[in-house]
């Protein structure tokens, strides 16, 4: 049962990754956008290093989240544009495997973008983040999972709406406030030199958020995909 779910999930993820590797329409846009965001922040805030250091955790997460949102929006719109939605629904087995497959793909793309943003961020803003990478990666991963879980569900929904590009962020950001707050605060403490133990309450909140929505979103997904 579980093996079957994993196999189908893997098939779905593999399909999305293969499409992406061939067409490269999502990840290229995400990476370029991420670099642009870091670039624009610099113009918006000026070159003062002290100011930048203070707002760094927020900037980092804005770059992560905006880039992530860009990728999430594509995950179901592409299916719709290519008229593949019906075929997606015809796949045998539980709808949950579609959800988890899409989710895994979305997390993968977002993590890839983050892996580029993080070093670029350290270089462009002169922050010494290299020793902190493992703890930052943990926070980034926990935040990304929660954000993508709700995001994948909402992307499936908004793909069928008018004004779909606008609706995804409008629904996604209010619902993910706990993730945003938790990730930014934890990142702030880590950049200030605090260890993981100092941010354990935020990590627990992020973990709790992830668990709750990893259970609820696949259940809700069944109702979203119904035709």
């Amino acid at each position: 049962m579980v093996a079957e779910l994993l196999r189908r999930t893997w098939a779905m993820t593999w399909k999305d990754v293969t499409v992406e590797l061939r067409a490269r329409e999502r990840i290229n846009a995400m990476l370029f956008f991420a670099a642009l965001v870091l670039f624009i922040f610099n113009f918006a805030l000026g070159p003062d290093r002290e100011t930048l250091r203070e707002v760094a955790p927020g900037l980092l997460w804005l770059a992560f989240l905006f880039t992530g949102m860009l990728g999430l929006g594509r995950s179901f719109q592409a299916e719709r544009e290519n008229e593949c939605f019906e075929e997606l629904l015809l796949t045998p087995g539980d709808r949950e495997s579609i959800f988890f497959g899409k989710l895994a793909g979305n997390i993968l793309f977002m993590v890839t973008a983050e892996a580029l943003i993080l070093p670029l961020f350290g270089i462009l803003y002169n922050l010494d983040i290299w020793g902190l990478l493992p703890s930052l990666a943990l926070v980034a991963f926990l935040g990304t999972v929660g954000f993508s879980a709700i995001g994948t569900l909402l992307a499936a929904m908004t793909a069928h709406l008018r004004a779909r590009e606008v609706m995804l962020p409008l629904l996604l950001f209010p619902l993910t406030v706990p993730v945003i707050l938790g990730s930014v605060r934890a990142t702030e403490a880590i950049l200030a030199g605090g260890g993981l133990s100092e941010v354990s309450h935020w990590l627990k909140l992020l973990g709790g958020f992830d668990v709750i929505f990893l259970v609820v979103c696949p259940l809700a997904f069944e109702f979203v995909l119904e035709e």
Binding site: M157, V216, A220
Partner: peptide, 13 residues
């Protein structure tokens, strides 16, 4: 359906 799903997510949030 979408509205119902969103309302449940929102309340759990």
């Amino acid at each position: 359906r979408y509205g119902a799903v969103l309302a449940i997510l929102g309340f759990l949030d």
